[in-house]
Amino acid sequence: MYKLVAIDIDGTLLNDKHEITSEVKNAIQKAKALGVKIVLCTGRPLVGVQQYLSDLELREEGDYVISFNGAMVQDTFTKRVLSHLTLNYQDLKEIYHFSESAKLHMHFFDEKTLYTPNRHIGKYTVGEAYLTGAQLVFQEIENTPTDLIMSKAMLIDEPDILEAGILKIPASFHQKYHLVRSAPHYLEILNKEATKGNAVKQLAMSLGIERSEVMCIGDQENDTSMIAYAGLGVAMGNAIPEIKAKADFITASNNESGVAVAIQKYIVN
Rank of each mutant, 00 (worst) to 15 (best):
Pro170Thr: 07
Arg211Pro: 00
Ala245Gln: 12
Leu207Ile: 06
Asp160Phe: 12
Leu136Gln: 11
Ser212His: 12
Ile240Val: 15
Phe249Tyr: 14
Met226Trp: 01
Asp147Asn: 13
Pro241His: 02
Phe173Glu: 05
Gly197Thr: 02
Ile227Val: 01
Tyr229Asp: 07
Gly122Met: 04
Ala199Asn: 09
Pro159Gly: 08
Lys168Asp: 10
Lys192Ala: 08
Ile161Val: 14
Gly231Gln: 04
Pro170Asp: 06
Pro184Ala: 08
Gly122Thr: 06
Met226Ile: 03
Ile166Glu: 14
Thr144Ala: 09
Glu193Ile: 03
Ser212Glu: 15
Val137Ala: 11
Ala252Asp: 08
Gly122Leu: 03
Ala134Gly: 09
Lys192Gln: 12
Ala199Leu: 03
Lys123Ala: 08
Glu128Ser: 13
Val180Asn: 05
Phe138Leu: 09
Ile209Thr: 11
Leu148Trp: 07
Ala228Ser: 10
Ile149Cys: 07
Gly165Cys: 13
Val200Asn: 09
Glu221Arg: 02
Val137Glu: 14
Leu232Asn: 00
Ser253Tyr: 07
Gln220Glu: 14
Ile161Ala: 04
Lys168Pro: 00
Ile156His: 12
Gln202Tyr: 14
Glu193Cys: 04
Ser182Thr: 14
Glu193Leu: 10
Ile141Phe: 08
Met226Gly: 12
Thr125Tyr: 08
Leu136Ile: 06
His174Asp: 00
His174Trp: 15
His178Ile: 06
Glu163Trp: 14
Gly258Asn: 04
Ala235Lys: 02
Ala164Arg: 14
Tyr229Ala: 07
Val180Pro: 03
Glu210Met: 10
Tyr124Ile: 04
Gln175Asn: 04
Glu128Cys: 12
Gly208Ser: 10
Pro184Phe: 13
Ile121Gln: 11
Leu207Phe: 11
Ala247Arg: 02
Val234Ala: 01
Ile227Glu: 01
Lys176Gln: 14
Ile243Trp: 00
Arg181Tyr: 14
Ile227Thr: 02
Ala252Lys: 06
Leu187Thr: 05
His178Ala: 07
Ile240Phe: 02
Asn254Gly: 02
His178Phe: 15
Pro184Trp: 15
Lys246Ser: 05
Thr146Ala: 00
Ile156Glu: 15
Tyr177Met: 03
Glu256Met: 03
Arg211Cys: 06
Pro145Thr: 01
Ser253Cys: 04
Ser253Asp: 05
Thr195Phe: 02
Gln139His: 12
Leu167Glu: 15
Arg211Ala: 12
Val180Thr: 14
Gln175His: 08
Asn222Met: 03
Val200His: 05
